[in-house]
Design a protein around this nucleic acid. Sequence first.
DNA 1: CAGGATCCGTTTCGATACTG
DNA 2: CAGTATCGAAACGGATCCTG
Lengths: 137, 137
Amino acid sequence: MKRSSTVRRSGCPISIALELVGDPWSLLIVRDLMFKGVHTFDGFLTAGEGIATNVLSDRLARLERGGIVDRRPDPEDGRRVRYRLTKKGIGLAPMLVEMVLWSAEHEATDAPEGTVREMRQSRRRVLDRIRRAWRQA
Amino acid sequence: MKRSSTVRRSGCPISIALELVGDPWSLLIVRDLMFKGVHTFDGFLTAGEGIATNVLSDRLARLERGGIVDRRPDPEDGRRVRYRLTKKGIGLAPMLVEMVLWSAEHEATDAPEGTVREMRQSRRRVLDRIRRAWRQA
DNA sequence: CAGGATCCGTTTCGATACTG
DNA sequence: CAGTATCGAAACGGATCCTG
């Protein structure tokens, strides 16, 4: 596998950010940040699907290097670190929403619940809410 | 990493089909099928980014098991195998389009070309064309 | 105690090459 | 157009250690 962050086909600019989207853990982290308001190391550890600490460290560093998340000390508790999606990171929302919709339609076994239904009915509204929650977080 | 094809958070149906979307090679194959009309083993081998034969075999089998592609003997040359996206597979188009758009905006270094510009201006038209091309292929 | 880094045994991946 | 075999590289999980 090439190590470049994007792959480009000659004559056809169909490039995909595989560095991000090709990695399950990174996607789970972004998803937790975007949909669940999880923003601490421990939050990812417990809310996630059992990611190991070293893997989490590594992915957070990658995402930070890629400009998708940033880290700052928690304003209310200087010892804590707060991870946030950057503007570039929040730009992934449409993609994530499509991923969730496709998964709900084709893979998930139990009936879709409120969030998914609303996504299906009005992507725009869901995206607006995600962006709003992000701005004031 | 869990081996299940979808991951679900309790109380929040934000599940993502990581089995597919967490794997770079699978994404490249789907992309080639969707945007480039590549549909043979050798096509993926040469048009792709240097995938190994065993990996390609493995991913095609996975995608087939996942119901995303199917394989049939080429009508004009029975020895050849033709891979096609299934309906479920073509359902990934919106997600792929968002991936391409995000990548073009944030990752790709050279100026976006026609396809990307058209995607940005009218996702609908691009998606319609993809689906039409798929139906008559 | 939160946020990581490091070491280590194990599993998975992938490049190459060979087979039908 | 694939399946298989090998074998080194990388990723992973788990535990442990470190630092404020």
